[in-house]
């Protein structure tokens, strides 16, 4: 039989793939080898000049990457712990279970930029309600203008916004778990703690890894929260890689250089997420 016509069916999908993935990446690579900026528009060819500049002369990018790594790992860890706890809470039969399930999802359904504006108003050091309340106790923390606290604020907003996503995935995982291991654990006399450690957690490991990786991918793109809350400040205390690339590309209009930053960042993320996934599998999945 001749199956050559199968390629005809693959062709539309292939076209879409080229259009939305391969062409943009290819164009970014080409752009990264040009000096396109506000004064020299166009795809001239400067070879790897932008990459040399990045690796030899741009410590700010690497500092931003270090900050991003810290913020991503911290927020995703907190989201995982909180999301798992909330999922466990509404997994069992409790009163108003459906109400809580919907309630916990609300932050994820709101628009990030709008919610960040609201959070910014909350945390405004001289006009916001959080400090109005804390002033009663004589505290006036600098949520947005202290180098350390501004990171904490970004983490709070990110955790609030995206813990529901983790909750949703983990709850779906919990609801799909087989009942037999729990019966066996119960017969063996295992209490809730042991059941969680030796049954629930291992059974949830595959979906946990998936959820963590998805959130890490998303968290590594953190931009809107930083943009609205702090503009990367104070100083560069909350400047992340994506915000830095945004500044270089769309504020300073250095298209060529920001393309080099973007492509390098993409490669770094692919490598680091692959390593993280492998480490998580080794740590969380027992043979």
């Amino acid at each position: 039989m001749n199956f050559k016509h199968k390629y005809l069916f693959l062709f539309p999908g292939l076209l879409v793939l080229i259009g939305i993935l391969i062409f943009p990446v290819g164009f970014t690579v080409r752009l990264s080898m040009s000096s396109w900026d506000s004064f020299f528009p166009g795809l001239d060819y400067v070879g790897l000049e932008n990459y040399f500049r990045l690796f030899q002369d741009d410590s700010r990018f690497w500092e931003a990457f270090g900050r991003l790594s810290f913020l991503s790992v911290t927020t995703v860890t907190l989201q995982y712990v909180l999301g798992f706890a909330l999922a466990l809470m509404v997994w069992k039969d409790i009163a108003f279970k459906r109400f809580f399930r919907v309630l916990f999802l609300i932050p994820m359904m709101t628009t990030p930029v709008i919610m960040t504006v609201i959070w910014k108003t909350f945390f405004h050091e001289s006009l916001g309600p959080v400090n109005d309340f804390l002033n009663i106790f004589g505290w006036n923390p600098l949520w947005l203008s202290s180098e350390i606290l501004s990171k904490v604020t970004v983490i709070i907003v990110e955790v609030w916004q995206w813990t529901p996503f983790m909750f949703l995935l983990l709850l779906a995982g919990l609801l799909s778990l087989p009942k037999e291991p729990y019966l066996a654990a119960s017969i063996d006399g295992a209490g809730p703690y042991r059941t969680f450690i030796y049954v629930t957690f291992p059974l949830m490991a595959p979906i946990s890894i998936g959820a963590i990786i998805i959130r890490l991918i998303e968290a590594s793109k953190i931009m809107d929260t930083v943009y609205v809350l702090t503009s990367g400040g104070p100083g560069t205390a909350t400047e992340t890689s994506s915000f830095y690339i945004f500044i270089k590309g769309l504020r300073e209009f250095q298209f060529g250089y920001s393309a080099a930053l973007s492509f390098t960042y993409l490669i770094i993320m692919i490598i680091s997420l692959t390593i993280i996934a492998k480490v998580l599998v080794r740590l969380m999945i027992r043979e």
Binding site: D37, S38, F39, E147, G235, T236, F253, Q254
Partner: peptide, 22 residues
Amino acid sequence: PGVFQFNSALATGAAKALAGQL
């Protein structure tokens, strides 16, 4: 030409000083 690059560099430097980083 490139006025945003100059001003952005200044903003970053001044912000670092205001934040006590430099």
